[in-house]
Design a protein around this nucleic acid. Structure first.
Length: 267
DNA sequence: AATGGCAGCAACCGCATGACC
DNA sequence: GGGTCATGCGGTTGCTGCCAT
């Protein structure tokens, strides 16, 4: 096997907060070449960051489909309910909340909901098992297993395969409604630059995702969960070779990873 | 106005998992 | 089958800004 070279290992890696300059570099690079190999991308992207750091920054902050701002009541309820069912499986909970990242939900849980959760439990007389749950939350705070199985009674476990409470707002996000009007085609470079580099409203971002993209733009090999082209081999490329972003497929992929839409809409 | 405490959030770290050879 | 690597996940840390004193 040809061992992949660590592009990161030569130059000292920056840590800490990302600068707007770094954000621009990463965004511009991904916009142009797509995501092909996180560990090797920083170098050609002119970033003194680890691939891990780049990935995290993109996934949690720069991705155009990130929904920022306060959590709605429905989202809170979804988080609470999902946490009850799934424990600390933040990525699974995030999958139920389009536009929200696991990190964001995790932070939100620790800063807001956990307290409320505790208060609710302490004041509620729901069931004896729930009281036990409350204590377990405290007990499991340092549990590295990450899954609060103790929180899940049999009925909850059996519920893991679906039937999760969903936010009503999701019903407006049906990708099938995306326009295919060529007249609506946009300057993607400009749009993604604007949408990604500035913190625009979710509505704007949403409309961005609904923009159609021509098939000529597609050079799809494979997309990762963020919808960008992912290199399928590990042979390593000195330079990325894919022109490659299909935002339509990005959108599609994102939705493919979501729970059954009909189920979510209570159909 | 200074400062100490606290909350919120971005980012890092370590581990698990899966793909590839 | 075992080693290596990339990626994803969850826990934790540390920075920053706000607020009370």
């Amino acid at each position: 096997m040809v061992k992949a070279q660590h592009a990161e290992e030569k130059m000292p890696l920056r840590k800490g907060a990302w600068t707007p300059e770094e954000d621009k570099k990463l965004t511009a690079y991904i916009k142009r070449y797509g995501i092909w190999n996180w560990s090797q991308m920083p170098k050609p992207a002119d970033l003194a960051r680890s691939g891990k750091s780049c990935r995290l920054r993109w996934m949690n902050y720069l991705r155009p489909d990130i929904k920022r701002g306060n959590f709605s009541k429905e989202e809170e309820e979804t988080i609470l309910k999902c946490h009850e069912e799934l424990g600390n499986r933040w990525s699974a909970i995030a999958a139920k909340l389009p536009g929200r990242t696991d990190n964001e939900i995790k932070n939100y849980w620790h800063t807001n909901l956990k307290k409320r959760f505790r208060n609710n439990w302490s004041t509620s007389s729901t069931t004896a098992s729930l009281t036990v749950q409350n204590r377990d939350v405290e007990a499991n705070q340092n549990d590295s297993s990450g899954i609060n199985l103790l929180h899940c009674d049999a009925s909850k476990v059996s519920n893991l395969d679906g039937n999760h409470p969903m936010s009503p707002q999701l019903s407006t996000d049906d990708p099938s409604t995306s326009s295919t009007d060529p007249a609506a085609e946009i300057d993607r470079n400009q749009t993604i630059e604007e949408n990604v580099c500035s913190s625009e409203t979710f509505e704007e971002l949403q409309s961005f995702w609904e923009q159609p993209f021509s098939l000529e733009d597609l050079c799809m090999v494979e997309t990762d969960t963020a919808g960008f082209i992912a290199q399928t081999t590990k042979t390593g490329f000195p330079e990325p070779i894919y022109p490659c972003i299909s935002y339509e497929d990005v959108h599609h992929d994102l939705w493919l990873n979501l729970p059954n839409q009909e189920e979510m809409h209570g159909m």
